[in-house]
């Protein structure tokens, strides 16, 4: 199957899923007890003002009608305007998505770069000293609450040691952000040769990235270890030993046969980091999508919440398409399914 056809089939499969996601978030937001009208109107509003706001927002229409209008807009690529800021939700999300993706990329990237080799090494000698040591470490990574870890890191590295800049967002207040190209200060700084901006962006990134790396590495270590141990005890590896394959070749075999399940796991993990991302962004005042979503939920900004959830769903689907494709590259025997 060609890649184009694969993409097409995937897209067709995804459409009903997306409609479902839109429907469920739409309904959940509305029955969730959030009251945007009260917030917009303020404490001194009269009943008439209430009614007119409700009418403006279309909240007096029956639910099915509200939904069909919204769905029609979404299909045309219009996620509506935020009721609180009157800004276009899609524009807001686009800007912030890059910011969050940058953090996610470095955090999970480093988490995987550390976690996968560590997990493999632990698997090659289960219950050995290294394995026991990493088990304690990853238990720590599992049990630590994300926001607490973030706060402690700020306390230690900014307040006590002074090694890192204050957690006030993505760039020092003293540096002018570079011209916008991609939306990532680091990349834009490098592209426009604004080294001061790139350096400031990088040093702001360090703490939240480490924080995310720690939180995401723990499950990666655990899964990688489990996957590799399973491969090590498989018929394939047994037979490889029986054929006298040298240790080096056997390790390569184990690596190749573990790659796909590990990758798939990392993909699942990435799509499941939504909550973690929101917390880290909040603590570090990151201003990305996670923080945006959290704010939208807290303030009952219906259109923003709906847009946020929809974008997350699209993101998950994209991640899995990418993984399918990478698996296809690693594992030529598999069909794109």
């Amino acid at each position: 199957m060609t890649f184009q056809r694969f993409l097409l089939r995937r897209a067709l499969m995804v459409i009903p899923l997306m409609i479902g996601v839109v429907f469920i978030t739409f309904m959940l937001v509305r029955i969730g007890g959030l009251d945007p009208v009260g917030r917009l109107a303020g404490p001194t509003a009269t009943q008439a003002e209430f009614d007119s706001i409700r009418n403006n927002l279309g909240l007096d229409q029956p639910l099915w009608k509200q939904f069909s209008i919204y769905l029609g807009n979404v299909v045309r690529g219009d996620l509506g305007e935020s009721w609180l800021s009157n800004r276009s939700v899609l524009t807001d999300i686009k800007e912030r998505a890059v910011i969050s993706l940058e953090l996610l990329f470095w955090g999970v990237g480093i988490g995987a770069l550390v976690g996968v080799p560590v997990g493999l090494r632990a698997a090659f000698r289960p219950n050995g000293r290294f394995d026991q040591f990493t088990r304690v470490l990853s238990l720590f990574g599992f049990s630590i609450p994300t926001y607490w870890l973030a706060l402690v890191m700020i306390f230690v590295f900014f307040y006590l040691l002074g090694w890192s800049p204050p957690a006030i967002g993505r760039m020092s207040l003293l540096v002018t952000p570079p011209d916008m190209i991609t939306g990532s200060y680091l990349i834009d700084g490098v592209l426009t040769a604004r080294w001061d901006a790139a350096r400031s962006a990088a040093s702001q990134l360090i703490l939240p990235v480490i924080c995310l790396a720690i939180v995401s590495a723990a499950p990666i270590i655990k899964q990688t270890r489990a996957i590799a141990i399973e491969v090590l005890s498989s018929d394939t590896v047994r037979y490889a030993h029986a054929c006298g394959l040298p240790e080096r070749n056997v390790r390569k075999l184990v690596l190749r046969n573990s790659a796909v399940p590990i990758l798939t796991y990392i993909g699942t993990e990435v799509t499941g980091l939504v909550g973690t991302m929101s917390l880290i962004e909040y603590v570090f005042a990151w201003g990305g999508l996670g923080q945006y979503g959290l704010n939208a939920i807290i303030s009952g900004d219906f259109t923003a919440v709906q847009g946020y959830v929809l974008v997350l769903a699209v993101f998950s689907v994209l991640v899995f398409i990418v993984i399918d494709f990478v698996v296809y590259l690693i594992e030529p025997r598999s069909e794109l399914s």
């Binding site: 018929d235 394939t236 047994r238 037979y239 006298g244 046969n257």
Partner: peptide
Amino acid sequence: NRIRGNNIAMVVQNPRTSLDP
């Protein structure tokens, strides 16, 4: 390892899962 698969060869029970997939 220099003897296994060389001077002593083995045929096992689960051929399909034993080959490198």
